[in-house]
Design a protein around this nucleic acid. Structure first.
Length: 268
DNA sequence: TTCCAGGGATATA
DNA sequence: TATATCCATGGA
């Protein structure tokens, strides 16, 4: 086990990072949180003065927690002196995790029309059944394991009608190098993702944001619809998303996450 | 009990 | 292109 220790800052709050809805494989443990990403594990504890990350691979988690990015700067650029500023103030400890594309694809297919606690359970059962056994946990399954599991397996873990999506997408991706998709621009990559069965505009945008680190996207789900129901009256979700990307441009993904978290937590 | 969730596919016009 | 309906599941 390796350790990463640094001074606590306002732009790193492990509770907000994990509970803001961008990731599903984590839980509270003792005085901190444990998060699993692909085939890695980290335990994070924090207090007012410092953050400690005990993990199996420091380099992996330095990348995962997006330490290269200057969140103070992004937050200052997005300060509109209005409701976005309120959301930033409320969720300023959020960082956008640099998740694996495969993990993002399957996680957000499961997420559609679903509650977060249920999403977490389905993914956990999927990893337990198909993932490689690691030291005290299960890795995210390989694409071959997912492709050979079968539709009935996905039903058995509670995926419901999404079982057929998961089964088909796993088989569709078996001979694809999704890392090479990073060469595509955002619009082309969105089209590629939406060609997968069960991936529409919203899920594609979540995969773009959380799995491919594209920030010129604005996933519009039921919570974001509530945020903008007066501003964009009777505007369809896809159109709303396009308008919001035009408005917030390269910061759209960040703004979306602050607003999502603020709306969902505070219900205002 | 009914409503709802980080929606998408399909049929229809 | 735009709208309506159906889809599984279980927490609240």
């Amino acid at each position: 086990m390796a350790q990463l220790k640094f001074e606590k800052t306002p732009t790193f709050d492990i509770v907000q990072i994990l509970e803001c809805g961008q990731v599903f494989r984590f839980h509270k443990e003792g005085d901190g949180y444990v998060v699993y990403a692909l085939n890695h594990k980290a335990k994070i504890t924090q207090d007012d003065s410092q953050v400690v990350i005990d993990c199996d691979d420091v380099d992996f988690f330095v990348d995962y927690f997006d330490f290269e990015q200057n969140y103070e700067l992004i937050q200052s650029k997005c300060d509109d002196k209005g409701f976005v500023a309120e959301a930033i103030e409320y969720g300023k400890g959020i960082r956008l995790l640099r998740q694996n594309p495969h993990e993002a694809i399957f996680s957000f297919i499961i997420s559609q029309n679903n509650h977060i606690p249920r999403i977490k359970g389905i993914i956990e059962r999927m990893c337990e059944a198909l993932g490689e056994k690691m030291d005290g946990y299960f890795a995210f399954p390989t694409i071959d394991k997912l492709a050979s599991a079968g539709e009935e397996f996905f039903k058995s873990i509670g995926a419901g009608y999404r079982a057929v999506y998961l089964d088909r997408v796993a088989k569709e991706l078996q001979n694809e190098d999704v890392e090479s998709w990073r060469a595509l621009d955002t619009e082309e990559l969105r089209k590629r993702l939406m060609s997968l069965h069960g991936v529409g505009r919203k899920v594609a945008d979540c995969i773009l944001l959380f799995g491919f680190q594209r920030y010129d996207v604005f996933p519009v789900d039921t919570w974001i619809k509530k945020v903008f129901e007066d501003t964009y009256k009777n505007v369809p979700a896809d159109k709303m998303s396009t308008l919001l990307v035009q408005k917030y441009q390269k910061y759209a993904g960040f703004v979306q996450q602050w607003l999502f978290y603020y709306k969902r937590e505070k219900k205002v």
